[in-house]
């Protein structure tokens, strides 16, 4: 599971460089996200623009990451591809997460979002 991490002063952007977050990779994703976010107090934005497919195991892992971050750092998402957007919408997770319409070109526009 390749996750690329960039930072602004108040935001950590994790770009998932994988085509799938599925049952075969969900635990790895959850563990890697925990390692990446544990030693950093910034807000977290998950860039899913490379993810073409997510299943309910992958969705559960994203929910687990959100819960692990705690109420002070609500997980933000961006770049949902059509199939991923469909899963979030059908499970009503689109109303739970802060979802930005596009992947961030730069982080500036996102600082006040949400």
């Amino acid at each position: 599971m390749r996750l690329d991490c960039t930072h602004t002063p108040d935001l950590m952007i994790v770009h998932v460089r994988e085509p799938r977050i599925d049952a075969a990779g969900a635990i790895d994703f959850k563990d890697r996200m925990r390692d990446l976010t544990a030693q950093d107090g910034r807000r977290v934005l998950l860039d899913l623009s490379d993810v073409m497919f997510i299943d309910s195991s992958g969705l559960g892992a994203v929910v687990a990451v959100r819960k692990a971050l705690g109420p002070e750092r609500p997980l933000e998402l961006s770049g949902l591809t059509p199939s991923v957007e469909k899963v979030f919408r059908l499970t009503r997770m689109d109303s739970v997460f802060i979802i930005h319409p596009t992947a961030p070109a730069g982080a500036d526009g996102l600082r006040d979002a949400g």
């Binding site: 299943d55 309910s56 559960g60 059908l90 499970t91």
Partner: peptide, 24 residues
């Protein structure tokens, strides 16, 4: 059936699979 809506800290991490099947 979807897991009942919960506060963000109590969100279910599973139970969405059959809902997706039934929906589509």
């Amino acid at each position: 059936r979807l897991p009942s809506p919960a506060a963000a800290e109590d969100l279910s991490e599973g139970g969405y699979g059959w809902h997706l099947i039934r929906s589509l």
